[in-house]
Nucleic acid binder design. Structure first.
Length: 286
DNA sequence: CACTCGTGGAC
DNA sequence: TGTCCAAGAGT
């Protein structure tokens, strides 16, 4: 849930999720669509699919337990380098080099002296992160290493933030290479991600409708260009009307052509986020 | 390596 | 107001 998503947005969803599915077995017993629905509006709904697949793999391959081995973690669906290292270090107390966007920014500033890390994660950053990790030969060293991971992330998340860092209260400001260099501006220009008219926007609107629907949604409603039926005509297929009428409006509002809508729906089906019911309808996966 | 994939708060 | 960006992963 935390992948590319702010902590404060994750927390309430995570609480509900854990109350409903306390163990991998609980989640594995559900249809994938329930995971997608419970994902709510965290974004990147494929993560919900992968987490569900992960729960099933934990059941089938790991006896319902989360493995502590880094390579085994890495092999799980939706678990990449960052997540594997974070689980190893934070959940199991086994040090692994945790590098997320916060750590990258802290390193770029405090050590390299740049305002921002490179646009894409480089091998040099990975080597630097490894070199900065405390030694972990002794028990104390192991604790230090795990603490280091948490400290680097928290420093980046709370003090050394992307927009307006709180350098005045930063505990490492005396040794910060970026401060020492006079806080130079970024050496590249971040390219903003477009949104209006993108496939992401269309897919997102379609997923909003599918999550809100209690039964199959006619394909034509998702792919039709031009005015869609009035929200009241769709009551039979929806959850609570108040909650979802706005979401239908969002779909109607899209400036998406027929080919784009069709491509996006096909993409959602290919991703396993939507399935066809054989009668011209679409639902979340069973 | 470059690209795709959601969402909404902050400034 | 529009832009930026957030505990990345998979292809």
């Amino acid at each position: 849930m935390l992948q590319q998503t702010p902590v404060v947005r994750v927390l309430p969803v995570w609480e509900r999720w854990m109350a409903r599915w306390p163990t991998p077995a609980d989640l594995a017993a559900e249809p994938a669509g329930e995971a997608v629905r419970a994902w709510e509006k965290l974004g990147y709904p494929r993560r919900a699919l992968r987490l569900h697949a992960c729960a099933r793999e934990l059941e089938e391959v790991h006896g319902g337990r989360v493995p502590s081995d880094l390579a085994e973690l890495l092999a799980l669906p939706g678990v990449g380098e960052y997540t594997a290292a974070a689980v190893s270090s934070f959940a199991f107390g086994i040090p692994a080099t945790v590098v997320d966007t916060n750590v990258r920014r802290v390193q770029a500033r405090a050590v390299t002296g740049q305002a921002l890390p490179e646009p894409s994660y480089t091998r040099a950053e990975a080597r630097l992160a490894d070199a900065l990790m405390p030694q972990r030969e002794t028990q104390d060293g192991i604790r230090e290493a795990n603490l280091w991971n948490a400290a680097a992330m928290e420093l980046g998340a709370l003090i050394c933030t992307a927009r307006s860092p709180s350098c005045d209260v930063c505990p490492v400001r005396q040794r910060c290479a970026w401060i020492a260099a006079g806080q130079p501006a970024p050496h590249y220009q971040p390219k903003g991600q477009a949104w209006e008219g993108t496939d992401r926007q269309v897919r997102g609107a379609m997923m909003t409708v599918l999550r809100a629907a209690e039964s199959s949604v006619p394909e034509a409603l998702l792919t039709a260009v031009g005015p869609l039926p009035q929200a009241r005509d769709l009551d039979a297929q929806r959850g609570t009307p108040e909650q979802t009428s706005e979401q239908w409006r969002a779909l109607r509002r899209l400036a998406a052509g027929a080919e784009q809508r069709q491509r996006c729906l096909t993409g959602l089906i290919a991703d396993g986020l939507a399935v066809q019911d054989g009668a011209g309808g679409v639902t979340l996966p069973a």
